[in-house]
């Protein structure tokens, strides 16, 4: 009898271990005292998982005409002032090298700028009803993780004779040298840091409709992405969205760009709005 009991307990334990994570029809953030900022933090095991089904962005040109990433597994953990999302999706190829005809893997989370029962258009919001977006990119992650910012870091066989702003007559790191280098990197000179070097792989953005994406004033999002055996696992941490409290909810959407499929900008897989709520006490 006692042996039977041991067997039953063992079977029950195995079954519990094999059972997948709790899944929810919306994104449910569990309250916690500490926000995990690494994808492999054990704290994520406490959060239920929402599988966000992705749609082709086929509303505005240029459209994505062929579906790639089917879904994203989303978990969320909220603290007093911030919320962390972990996005995981399947992607056979690691695309983190920008270049001609080369596109990088990326993802983003989107929430309404203002909580509203009538949510903005899920496709980047609409005029007067904006959205906030936190955007992570694999090449930025690689730079943050230590990849260099020379052309050979992107094209290992590249050969360069000379850059004018690295002339021996210019003191390295001097104001004059930096100013000259900036003139040869016009986007950087304009304050548009699309390439490296970067200190964060995440960028805060706002939008009021397709084509209106703009940097948010004052960046506060952070994050980290790592390759998994089957794809990417990315954590994005941002301030609590407007209207999200233990007793009130807001909306959430996600997008994924798959580099091998040459996805960038409007060519992406994206979800519609799903609910975002909190549960538990910290």
């Amino acid at each position: 009898m006692r042996r039977h009991l041991v067997v039953l307990v063992a079977v029950a334990l195995v079954a519990a271990c094999q059972r997948g994570p709790e899944t929810t029809p919306d994104v449910v953030a569990v309250l916690a005292s500490a926000i995990p900022d690494r994808p492999d933090d054990p704290a994520w095991n406490s959060a239920p998982e929402h599988v966000a089904k992705l749609l082709l962005q086929d509303l505005v040109e240029p459209r994505l005409m062929s579906a790639s990433t089917p879904d994203v597994r989303v978990r969320a953990i909220a603290g007093p002032t911030e919320i962390a999302f972990r996005l995981e999706w399947t992607d056979a190829s690691k695309d983190d090298l920008p270049g001609n005809g080369r596109f990088v893997d990326a993802c983003a989370v989107q929430v309404p700028q203002k909580a509203d029962p009538n949510a903005p258009d899920p496709q980047m919001g609409q005029a007067g009803k904006g959205v906030q977006i936190a955007y992570w990119r694999a090449d930025w992650q690689a730079t943050v993780d230590g990849r260099g910012t020379a052309i050979q870091d992107l094209y290992p066989n590249a050969t360069v004779d000379h850059y004018p702003f690295e002339a021996a007559s210019l003191e390295k790191g001097s104001d004059a040298q930096r100013q000259m280098a900036s003139r040869y990197a016009p986007a950087e000179g304009a304050g548009n840091l699309r390439g490296g070097p970067r200190t964060s792989p995440v960028e805060d953005l706002v939008a009021e409709g397709p084509g209106s994406l703009a940097p948010a004033g004052g960046s506060s999002a952070r994050g980290r992405g790592v390759r998994t055996a089957s794809g990417w696992s990315v954590v994005i941490v941002r301030p609590l969205p407007d209207g999200l409290t233990p007793t009130s909810r807001t909306q959430f959407a996600v997008a994924v760009w798959e580099g091998t499929s040459q996805e960038a900008g409007a060519r992406k897989m994206r979800s519609g709005w799903v609910g975002l709520s909190m549960r538990g006490t910290s």
């Binding site: 001609n100 990197a185 016009p186 699309r194 390439g195 960038a264 900008g265």
Partner: peptide, 23 residues
């Protein structure tokens, strides 16, 4: 934002993507 749509769209291929600045 370096989407490279212009690189693709220009029939004369006179727009170039800068992989270092990302534009």
């Amino acid at each position: 934002r370096g989407y490279q749509e212009c690189v693709k769209g220009c029939p004369y291929k006179k727009v170039f993507f800068n992989p270092m600045t990302g534009t």
